[in-house]
């Protein structure tokens, strides 16, 4: 029994990854848009699990907060606003563009050839590494959020500030786009 649990713990990433793929497939295959949103939610939660398995604890929690807490709820609101009392999609899929499907198949074959060559290679042992002056007084291996914040605010402050401006622009733009014509 302990051996079984240990094996599961070692293969956590693969389990979460496969479940995320299942969620994605549910999302693009289900007829009702609500079911698609639920598949999306399932995929996002499992991707958060993948982040945790990759020892990015802060990002895993942020993924759950941002996606499950914000974006999925927004999608559900709009789906319920738009899809209610609408007739079903007559034809769910559009496969008339055969060239697009063929191109995707060729790309997938190429990627799979790459992966077949070097499947499951060796992995590097070291965890996150900060510059010595940033890592002062910090247990980097166990304090992921602190380590990410020190890296973010030391080296990537400008992208962070640009992101805040972009969020403001998106906020104003969303209000302008969605408001009624005569106000």
């Amino acid at each position: 029994m302990e051996h079984f649990i240990e094996t599961i713990g070692r293969n956590m990433f693969a389990i979460f990854g496969v479940m995320a793929l299942v969620g994605g497939l549910l999302m693009i295959a289900s007829k009702s848009a609500i079911h698609s949103v639920l598949g999306f939610l399932f995929a996002m939660l499992n991707i958060a699990g993948c982040f945790l398995a990759l020892e990015a604890e802060f990002l895993g929690v942020a993924q759950i907060l941002v996606y499950a807490g914000g974006i999925v709820v927004l999608f559900l609101f709009v789906v319920m606003l738009v899809e209610v009392s609408k007739k079903k999609e007559g034809e769910v899929f559009q496969l008339q563009s055969r060239y697009a499907v063929a191109a995707v198949a060729v790309g997938a074959a190429m990627f799979l050839a790459v992966f077949r060559k070097a499947f499951f290679g060796v992995a590097s042992p070291e965890a996150l590494v900060l510059r010595p002056e940033l890592a002062k007084g910090l247990d980097v291996a166990h304090q992921n959020a602190q380590a990410v914040s020190r890296g973010l605010f030391a080296d990537y402050l400008l992208p962070f500030e640009i992101l805040s401006v972009i969020l403001l622009v998106a906020l104003v733009g969303a209000v302008v786009l969605a408001k009624t014509e005569r106000v």
Binding site: A56, L59, V129, A147, V148, G151, L152, L163, L167
Partner: peptide, 18 residues
């Protein structure tokens, strides 16, 4: 072992929300 990937993943998350 670099922190840059996680920092940019966080930024991408913000862009996705916008």
């Amino acid at each position: 072992g670099s922190v840059a990937g996680q920092a940019f993943a966080l930024l991408v998350m913000g862009f996705a929300a916008a």
